[in-house]
Amino acid sequence: MRVELSVKQVQGDFVKKVEEISGQNLLSCYQCGKCSAGCPMAFAMDILPNQIIRLAQLGLEEEIAKSNTIWICASCYTCAVRCPRGVDLARVMEALRLLTLRKNINYVQPIEIPPETLEGMPQVALVSSFRKLTS
């Protein structure tokens, strides 16, 4: 099926919102793929990080919503320090997560974490997981 591109998407609110929250110019990305090539979590992502940026450039919000990529990102910044165009992908991923989280939708449900997982887990892991993946 063809994806329809139009001024409504390419110049749409979604693109503006992502750029505003992340502080990044999405069009700085020239799609070299270096972020994806080095991403330590990309093996678990259904769409590579550079493809997420591409979808965001085109304003294809729905396609991004269908993907697990932004929830797998560990904000490790490997992509951002190597990006030849200086795009801070971690901030773009954060902006995309927040667009969901701010609708009061959690990715991690604290109540569902099994007690055996919690045992011995350092606070730093729990606090950062909740900060990143819950509303």
């Binding site: 330590p40 979590m41 678990a44 560990a74 991690v108 887990m121 892991a125 950062s128 997981s129 993946l133």
Partner: peptide
């Protein structure tokens, strides 16, 4: 990266890393 806080919600993936 060691998988970081993904150990909480995506334990399998974090462990791979």
């Amino acid at each position: 990266c060691c998988g970081s806080y993904q150990i909480v919600g995506n334990v399998g993936f974090a462990l791979e890393a």
